[in-house]
């Protein structure tokens, strides 16, 4: 809790000097029992007028959090660790399925729907604390399908 407050205060200090990035739709799909890893997804908009870099991440629920890129090349799925990612001024960077993601490694426990995982993103503008809700996989897709069906009814 104390640790959390420290980060939160760091975050608030920074806000006085730089336009805060906006965090959109943070989510961690719930993990199968026994899984040692999880992926975190979100979009980050850099509202400042200079490039923002994300240099790393951490969380109390995992031994390590890395920035990873999933990529399919010649029908081979690969995961490549990224030292950092850059977000240009005014642009939005997406961590999403089949692309960049936060890779939580060495989970203490399975992450269940309803859990909220605190993740700290280390950026060139300071640390940012993000509360990431854990959701059952595919919820957004199911919603999309339902919306689509509703559109058809209209």
């Amino acid at each position: 809790m104390f640790k959390k407050l420290v980060f939160l205060s760091l975050f608030l200090c920074h806000s006085a000097f730089a336009e805060l990035p906006s965090i959109i739709d943070p989510v961690i799909p719930a993990t199968p029992p026994g899984a040692q890893v999880a992926a975190g997804y979100l979009s980050l908009t850099n509202n400042s007028d200079s490039t923002l870099t994300i240099d790393g991440a951490s969380s109390a629920v995992a031994k390590k959090v890395e920035l990873h890129l999933s990529k399919v090349e010649n029908d081979v799925a690969k995961m490549i660790k990224q030292d950092s990612v850059m977000v240009k001024a005014g642009e939005t960077f997406e961590f999403k399925h089949g692309s960049y993601h936060l890779m939580l490694m060495g989970l203490e426990n399975a992450l269940k729907p309803g859990d909220v995982v605190d993740i700290i993103l280390e950026t060139s503008n300071g640390d940012i604390l993000i509360e990431m809700p854990v959701k059952k996989m595919g919820m957004s897709k199911m919603k999309k399908k339902m919306d689509h069906k509703m559109d058809n009814n209209n």
């Binding site: 799909p29 899984a35 999880a38 799925a77």
Partner: peptide, 10 residues
């Protein structure tokens, strides 16, 4: 493999 958080669960 189960240590695959993105492609395999999807």
């Amino acid at each position: 493999f189960t240590h695959c958080p993105d492609v395999c669960p999807t």
